[in-house]
Simulated scan of single mutants.
Amino acid sequence: MELLIQTLVAGTLLGGVYALVSVGLNLLFGVVRVINFAHGEFVMIGMYITFWLWAGLGMDPYVSLLVVAPAMFLLGVLFQRGIIQPIQSTSANMKIFATVGISIIVQNLALYLWGGRHRSVSTEYSTSVLTVGGINISVGRLVAFIGALVMVAALFYVMNRTMTGKVLRAIAEDGPTAVLLGVPVKKFYFVATGISVMLAGVAGVLLMPFTSASPTFGMHMTLIAFIVVVIGGMGSMVGSLVGGVLLGAIETLAGTYISPSLQQAVLFALFIVVVLVRPQGLFGKGAGTEEVGLK
Rank of each mutant, 00 (worst) to 15 (best):
A265Q: 09
V266F: 03
R169V: 02
G244Y: 07
L247W: 02
L206R: 09
S261I: 04
T222F: 06
G194F: 09
L181I: 03
L181A: 10
Q264N: 13
A170V: 04
F268S: 07
V183H: 00
V202H: 10
V185G: 13
A254I: 01
G255N: 08
I250L: 15
G255H: 07
H220P: 00
V273D: 01
P209I: 00
G255F: 08
F188A: 05
M208L: 14
A200W: 02
L206Q: 10
I250M: 14
R169E: 04
L262T: 06
Q263D: 03
A265G: 14
P184W: 01
V266T: 01
E173K: 12
T256R: 14
V242G: 12
V179Q: 15
E251L: 11
V197W: 06
G239C: 02
I272P: 04
I171V: 05
L247F: 03
K186T: 10
K186L: 13
F217A: 15
V205D: 10
A254N: 07
V185F: 05
M219L: 13
S212A: 14
M237G: 14
P215W: 00
F210K: 04
A213L: 01
S259C: 04
A265M: 15
I224A: 04
V179N: 11
V229G: 07
M221G: 11
V167T: 11
V191Q: 09
I195H: 12
I231L: 15
M198W: 07
T252C: 09
M234N: 02
M198C: 11
A249T: 03
L247H: 10
L199I: 06
A200S: 10
T256W: 02
G243N: 00
I272M: 13
P215R: 05
S259Y: 01
G239P: 01
G248H: 01
L247R: 09
K186P: 06
E173L: 14
G244R: 08
P209H: 02
A200Q: 03
P215S: 03
R169D: 02
A203N: 01
S261E: 11
P209D: 06
L247Q: 06
L199K: 08
V185S: 12
I227L: 13
G194W: 02
Y257F: 15
M208N: 06
M237A: 07
P215L: 05
V202G: 10
M208E: 03
I231D: 05
P176D: 04
T252N: 15
Y189E: 13
I258S: 00
V179F: 10
V229F: 09
F268N: 04
T211H: 14
V273E: 00
A249N: 08
G232E: 01
A269T: 12
